[in-house]
Lab assay of single mutants.
Amino acid sequence: SAVVMEEGSPGEVPVLVEPPGLEDVEAALGMDRRTDAYSRSSSVSSQEEKSLHAEELVGRGIPIERVVSSEGGRPSVDLSFQPSQPLSKSSSSPELQTLQDILGDPGDKADVGRLSPEVKARSQSGTLDGESAAWSASGEDSRGQPEGPLPSSSPRSPSGLRPRGYTISDSAPSRRGKRVERDALKSRATASNAEKVPGINPSFVFLQLYHSPFFGDESNKPILLPNESQSFERSVQLLDQIPSYDTHKIAVLYVGEGQSNSELAILSNEHGSYRYTEFLTGLGRLIELKDCQPDKVYLGGLDVCGEDGQFTYCWHDDIMQAVFHIATLMPTKDVDKHRCDKKRHLGNDFVSIVYNDSGEDFKLGTIKGQFNFVHVIVTPLDYECNLVSLQCRKDMEGLVDTSVAKIVSDRNLPFVARQMALHANMASQVHHSRSNPTDIYPSKWIARLRHIKRLRQRICEEAAYSNPSLPLVHPPSHSKAPAQTPAEPTPGYEVGQRKRLISSVEDFTEFV
């Protein structure tokens, strides 16, 4: 048969007729292969192709491409040299491709048809291009793949890379869960390890502090508590009631339409708007009261037996805890006409967050109470924005700035309102402590230090009264110190430094 060459192609190359033996071998191979691939376009007849790359030819070592076609129900084999250009295909004639002069020997084609199974398996396991790669995943090629499931790999992101949580363990979102698992493993320790309690022994800490320079003076030496005195035992138990972190309780009120001037209507609300609910979820963490331990979680007086509701929101960081007394989460009882059960919590909070959804101005004093010092007013606006402002009593104007209003988005509203309420509550605590000038409020841990110092002074006084020969370590507060001759004046800087060093040991009130 003659071949018409394309323009620009090399000279004529004689194409030899395939021997009958080659056709029989390739026909047997075509019957084993699956003929249901995917359909081509209507211009080209339905056909199945599979590209198999052999590394070497037997005796020649030339890479070839073998295409199996099922045109007219008769499979045909096409061998081509890759750099050459194939002729145009037609549905009426068999596929013809040019070969190099080196394939002119018909014996070479017979060798190609009689490829060993080793070469076929190696060509099938190679990388296939384009559409033949999808075909190689079918059941027909499963014989050339190794048996057994593939090893499982770690989760992959859409980009093909490992997620960040699997790369950096410290930033993994499941870090707290692993800590819980470690605690569970520790709890399952053997009885021999049960006595080993991690941490620092208080006796060891005391020993280090006792021999430090801070205890060089007799006034700073630790003293032993009497065991037989019940009054001192009660004082030590009272110390446990003062937490070592700051605590805040903040009221949250929802004002519906037409309720801006009605205290009873505001306290009777059992739910609010959708934006109000989203605002609550951002204030803190939802907790169930019956599962809380009052000595570990500050509840601000809420009952854990269901008297004040089942849930509330709280927030904490390293040095403070805040609980929100939310009116809509507290039960509304029919027998309580004046809502006294709610007001006994909300009316005693220094700061209230008022979500004013009424469309009218909310005035300070609508919720009557002796300790309502500051109101954080949240007014929802259009386009997911809110107006946040402050209202306070006249005696609080020096501590709280009420002249600045803020426009905040719904997303950042819980954070801004919480921070403003916490700052206002700190100012309210300082303002409330002014009624007792001898006990200015600095912080909870300073209050613990003052309680310890008062307890020490009482013990020293009782020891001096029981044994008059012992001198008083600290003179009583009601006694007057003996007159001392004025010492020589020293520079102001040295006096300030000495006073600062003494105050650092005794108390921190002056620095606050």
Rank of each mutant, 00 (worst) to 15 (best):
217 D>R: 08
222 P>R: 06
225 L>M: 15
226 P>V: 15
229 S>F: 09
230 Q>A: 12
231 S>A: 13
231 S>W: 14
234 R>W: 08
238 L>R: 15
238 L>T: 07
238 L>D: 15
242 I>V: 10
246 D>N: 09
252 V>T: 01
252 V>Y: 00
256 G>K: 04
262 S>F: 03
267 L>I: 07
267 L>P: 03
267 L>C: 03
268 S>P: 03
271 H>P: 03
278 E>I: 04
280 L>R: 01
282 G>D: 02
283 L>N: 00
285 R>G: 12
286 L>R: 08
291 D>Q: 14
295 D>I: 03
295 D>P: 09
297 V>E: 15
300 G>H: 14
303 D>P: 08
307 E>L: 12
308 D>Y: 08
309 G>Y: 08
315 W>T: 03
315 W>N: 03
316 H>K: 15
317 D>C: 02
318 D>Q: 13
318 D>T: 08
319 I>S: 07
324 F>W: 02
325 H>K: 05
325 H>Q: 05
327 A>M: 07
328 T>S: 04
329 L>M: 07
329 L>V: 04
331 P>T: 08
333 K>C: 13
339 R>D: 12
340 C>P: 10
340 C>Y: 15
341 D>Q: 15
345 H>W: 13
346 L>D: 06
347 G>A: 15
348 N>F: 08
349 D>C: 08
350 F>K: 04
357 D>N: 09
358 S>T: 03
358 S>K: 01
359 G>A: 05
362 F>H: 03
363 K>E: 11
365 G>Y: 04
368 K>W: 10
380 P>H: 00
382 D>L: 04
383 Y>D: 07
384 E>W: 04
385 C>V: 05
385 C>L: 04
388 V>W: 01
389 S>W: 05
395 D>N: 10
396 M>R: 03
397 E>W: 04
398 G>W: 09
399 L>I: 12
406 K>L: 15
410 D>L: 00
413 L>Q: 00
414 P>R: 00
417 A>N: 00
418 R>Y: 03
418 R>F: 05
419 Q>I: 09
420 M>L: 05
425 N>V: 07
425 N>E: 04
425 N>H: 07
426 M>Q: 03
427 A>T: 05
428 S>K: 01
437 P>N: 06
440 I>Y: 07
445 W>I: 05
451 H>W: 09
459 I>R: 07
461 E>H: 09
464 A>Q: 07
466 S>K: 09
467 N>I: 14
470 L>M: 12
470 L>H: 15
472 L>W: 12
474 H>N: 13
478 H>N: 15
479 S>M: 12
481 A>R: 10
481 A>H: 12
483 A>M: 09
487 A>D: 12
490 T>Y: 08
494 E>I: 06
494 E>L: 07
495 V>N: 14
495 V>W: 12
495 V>K: 15
500 R>M: 07
507 D>Y: 14
508 F>M: 15
509 T>C: 11
